[in-house]
Design a protein around this nucleic acid. Structure first.
Lengths: 129, 129
DNA sequence: ATAACTGCAAAATATTTGCAACGCG
DNA sequence: CGCGTTGCAAATATTTTGCAGTTAT
């Protein structure tokens, strides 16, 4: 199956890149529909799935309902503040050896791992004091 | 707010413990309703949330729609096979120092971390050969 | 007795899909 | 022109909630 370059596809990718804030599909849709109100939510979802498959964006599953999308495709870890819900990157080295460790322990062939942290971000910590 | 011991609550906890296979809420509901058909789906969801809050079961968010529940409450990691969807525990040491590492990198106060691996489990690996 | 809990139905949230029209290559 | 893509609406999936009746303590 071939793929075609469409205006909607480019807009979707641009949105994830410009938002930078690990947007949900809904946030991407809101952003895109400001520039192009005719776009359908379904198209945004379809294009986000497509972009994930081709590796142009990365899907992040943190602990709140919707999936988030990340324009940064090099492997890294995430933190989610349980009071404000914001998702941020963690400036921590990627653990190269972890997949191999899991393979040894499990007998499976491991292709990737995700790590996510939760707690209270520095902003929310201040407010609660 | 006080809590009361109910038949439905016990059944829900027992289901997670007996299923052992990281069931989803729906799977817990199906299991429980075989023994007690009058139970409502909403009650199962409410009780699963309650059991998570009190630490009796653990919520696992792996990369497929629904949340999974784990009777094993000591911290450990998970693997999900992307072809059969099965979720298994990984017999790998828990990294005690990871939260502290994230705190240093992020300035947040980190209360927990989850790690999940994906790939192909040993059964599916065989089948695809 | 009274406040927590339940069952039911409806709502909320998140995502996918069938289909006819559209438009990229 | 052909087939991938879109927009729309409806369907599906997962979870929560309002409410009136039930029950544990």
């Amino acid at each position: 199956m071939q793929t075609r370059k469409t205006f909607q596809k480019s807009l979707t990718l641009e949105a994830v890149r410009e938002l930078k804030s690990h947007p949900t599909a809904d946030e991407v849709y809101n952003f895109v529909s400001k520039q192009y109100p005719e776009i359908s939510r379904a198209t945004v979802y379809r294009n986000l799935n497509y972009l994930c498959e081709t590796g142009s964006v990365y899907r992040v599953r943190v602990a709140d309902g919707a999936d988030h999308f990340d324009y940064k495709t090099t492997p890294h870890y995430h933190f989610r503040c349980s009071s404000c819900g914001r998702v941020t990157d963690v400036a921590m080295p990627y653990m190269e050896n972890l997949n191999a460790q899991c393979e040894t322990a499990n007998g499976a062939s491991v292709t990737e791992h995700q790590v996510f942290f939760s707690g209270s971000c520095s902003d929310c910590k201040k407010q609660n004091q």
